[in-house]
């Protein structure tokens, strides 16, 4: 069953066409990874899906509803949660307060404070600490936990390994593996190809705002993706 459908999406930053006619579907329970070089339009695409950046053209349907022009808070209430690049935590609030804000979406589901602290045990000892005093890995875990507290049907993860130590990345990806095992639908934007391929059912490679390669992870080779990543060779045919 298709949960998210994106058709001919165009998103601009001023005069720059950051996303150019992108179309794809995401099925319920699927994990899709977007890869591509810096400036490929991945983050803009994710923000457009979450409603943080309104598109100039195209259509975004979520759970059968057209949400193209819906503001971000309505999309969050519909079940789309974004873990933004740079975490964007509320630094003056404690970890628990950051997590509890996720309840504002008003969605019912399995995720509550206890469930999040159980899924992300590294947060338990720091739950009363201010978010601004945490390490990058701890902040990323809070950002993921906060998104989970909205009880999302679709979780958007933007560059979650950016700036983290290898140990912290391992912890974050262990948490993602748990979410995938629980049947959460995930769209992941990731620079680290190996990490993305280790968790994604499907890979979509973007270059200069367009999709240049798409296919099941099991059917794509690392070389194919690397070529598409850097815009080398003929990679226009989608698998």
């Amino acid at each position: 069953m298709t949960l998210l459908s994106v058709r001919e999406l165009e998103v601009r930053h001023g005069l720059l066409r950051a996303v150019r006619g992108v179309s794809f579907d995401v099925a319920q329970g699927e994990t899709v990874a977007f890869v591509g070089a810096n400036g490929a339009g991945k983050t803009t695409l994710l923000r457009a899906i979450a409603g943080a950046h309104l598109p100039q053209a195209g259509r975004i349907s979520f759970a059968g509803e057209d949400v193209t022009s819906a503001p971000s808070y309505r999309r969050a209430r519909a079940g789309i949660a974004l873990v933004p690049e740079g975490r964007r935590l509320f630094g003056e609030l404690s970890v628990t307060e950051n997590l509890l804000l996720g309840l504002s979406a008003g969605n019912r589901g399995a995720w509550n404070l206890d469930a999040v602290l159980e899924a992300l045990p590294q947060l338990q000892p720091i739950r009363h600490a201010l978010a601004r005093n945490l390490s990058g890995g701890q902040q990323q875990a809070v950002a993921i936990g906060r998104a989970l507290m909205t009880n999302p049907k679709l979780l958007l993860l933007d560059e979650i390994s950016l700036g983290l130590s290898p140990v912290a990345v391992d912890l974050v990806y262990a948490a993602i593996a748990k979410l995938i095992a629980a049947g959460t639908t995930i769209i992941l934007v990731e620079q680290k190809l190996d990490r993305a391929m280790s968790v994604a059912d499907r890979m979509i490679c973007m270059l200069e705002g367009s999709v240049v390669l798409e296919g099941k992870t099991s059917q794509l080779t690392r070389d194919q993706i690397t070529d598409a990543y850097f815009g080398l060779g003929q990679v226009g045919a989608h698998s």
Partner: peptide, 23 residues
Amino acid sequence: QLGRAIRATAIDRDTVGLLGIDA
């Protein structure tokens, strides 16, 4: 919850939207 939402909105009104809060 409203109080926390008010404090969070004061810090970053764009991000609160991603959590279902109408700034």
